Amino acid sequence: MKTTTAQNILLILLAFLGLGALGGGLTFILSPDGTLMGMPVSDQSPFRSFLVPGIILFVVLGMVPVGLVFALLKKPTFDGAELLNFYPDMHWSWTYSLYVAFALISWIQVQMVIIQAVHWLHTFYMFYAVAILFVALLPAVRNLYQRKSATDAV
């Protein structure tokens, strides 16, 4: 399958997010006290260590986006993913790329609330999530994942 420039940008955005989150999540899993990242656990945090946030980061913002890169390229059928596909006229992988962007926005928002501050990286990742949404919603990208007929839907 030939890819378009807009699709390649979406794939790169998801891959960069996923690989970074895999690294960050794994670091927190291996060092739940935050020493590997040089980040102490905040007194305002509902977590006593970074283990649970590390697992969430690793899975939701790491494994899922990396998996989506392959799913967006191959368009596999996956009945489990179709259960949460709110856009039945679109392939589930496209819909989940939107979900990842909203998960990133939520992740950053929760971080800012917990630490009661805004770091420049929060702003960067908020704009990053908007970029994922913007590119995924481009007509050139939507057309690649739109189902042609009702028989294409699972």
Rank of each mutant, 00 (worst) to 15 (best):
I114R: 04
L84G: 04
S42H: 13
R142P: 05
V113E: 09
V52C: 03
Y145D: 05
S45D: 15
L19N: 03
T35A: 12
L72Y: 02
L22Y: 09
L73M: 14
Y128I: 08
S42Y: 03
S97W: 00
A136V: 14
D79L: 08
V64S: 01
H119F: 06
F134Q: 06
M126K: 10
I105R: 01
V59S: 06
L144R: 05
L51Y: 09
P76Q: 01
V118M: 13
Q7K: 12
L10P: 00
S49R: 08
L98Q: 10
A153D: 01
G25T: 00
R147H: 07
F16G: 12
G62C: 06
L57P: 00
F16M: 09
F78D: 09
L73I: 14
M112H: 07
I9K: 04
L83N: 03
V110G: 00
Q44E: 07
A103S: 07
K74T: 12
A71V: 08
F28H: 02
L10Y: 08
H122V: 08
L121W: 08
F86K: 06
K2I: 05
L26I: 15
A140W: 01
I114M: 09
A71G: 08
I105A: 11
I105P: 03
A6K: 03
G62P: 00
S149T: 06
I55T: 11
D89L: 05
L83C: 02
L61H: 02
T4G: 11
A150E: 01
L57W: 05
